[in-house]
């Protein structure tokens, strides 16, 4: 899957947040998206998924050549896109098992062998993510700790096997053990399929466990530079001042 974001602008209310984002993403690669607070990283993921609070004011998002901006959120998901939320919501009265069973059916509706094997898949994924099986019968995210909610996002990702996922600050608020489990989940999909991901983060820490192929830096609603993993180390060493002062190189390609 190839995702081309071209000159994308968006606002929420009167606040223009994205100011012409250009970004190319593809399956088979792990992309990291870094940038200071308020640079528009989470907005970008919300706009890609058609969150109703945001208004697109220009540009396009092409998935394998097709503009998805007119599609409903669920239609975008059914293309094979997945969003791991920064703040996963609690769904009262809907169990993890029931929710994922239906989501799995929607994702693999033409593959009955696969949908029949759902329970087995879910249980083995839960073991892999070190989540107690009792969570199957709990209401999704209700009363879960922050770390449990994040793990649950990755469990959903493993179970729905998207072609491309955006992980919106999945690492924030996680202790190192939880972070390793999350990384393990991403790395498994990466090893098993042509899975690709955009990992939105503030910190280098998660990128020690999930090695990115490409790193993008966002500032003031634009992707201002892209490069290899060495960018992460430069940010670690120098912070964002060199970006803010415009000393970065021009985007590569």
């Amino acid at each position: 899957m190839k995702i081309e974001i071209r000159d994308l602008s968006a606002r929420i209310g009167e606040n223009q947040i994205l100011n012409g984002v250009d970004l190319e993403l593809e399956s088979g690669k792990i992309h990291a998206l870094m940038g200071p607070n308020g640079s528009g990283k989470s907005t970008l993921s919300n706009v890609v998924f058609g969150h109703p609070a945001y208004e697109v004011t220009g540009g396009e998002v092409l998935v394998d050549g097709e503009n998805i901006l007119e599609m409903e959120t669920d239609e975008r998901a059914r293309l094979g896109l997945f969003l791991a939320f920064q703040y996963p919501v609690e769904i009262p009265g809907v169990t993890v098992g029931r929710f994922l069973k239906r989501a799995h059916e929607i994702r693999f509706e033409d593959d009955t062998d696969r949908t029949r094997g759902f329970v087995k898949t879910l249980r083995s994924n839960m073991d892999f993510m070190e989540i107690d099986q009792a969570f199957i019968n709990r209401y999704l995210n209700e009363g879960f700790s922050g770390g449990e909610k994040k793990r649950m996002e990755i469990l959903q990702m493993l179970t729905l096997e998207p072609d491309f996922a955006i992980l919106d600050e999945t690492d924030s608020g996680l202790d190192i053990d939880a972070l390793k489990v999350v990384a393990k989940g991403v790395n498994r999909l990466r090893a098993e399929s042509s899975f690709g991901a955009l990992i939105i983060t503030h910190y280098q820490r998660i990128l020690d466990h999930i090695k990115p192929d490409v790193v993008h830096i966002m500032y003031q609603g634009r992707v201002v530079t892209s490069g290899g993993p060495e960018l992460v180390h430069q940010l670690e060493a120098e912070g964002y001042d060199w970006i803010k002062e415009g000393r970065h190189e021009q985007p590569a390609g």
Binding site: A77, P92, G93, A103, I106
Partner: peptide, 30 residues
């Protein structure tokens, strides 16, 4: 019906109708 919940469920592939149905059933589940 909470828009945030609706949006979350729809990012998992649920159509608007199906998302509403799941959330309303969940609401009555107690």
């Amino acid at each position: 019906l909470d828009q945030g919940l609706l949006n979350y469920v729809r990012t998992r592939g649920f159509s608007l109708d199906e998302a509403r149905r799941m959330l309303v059933e969940g609401y009555f589940e107690a």
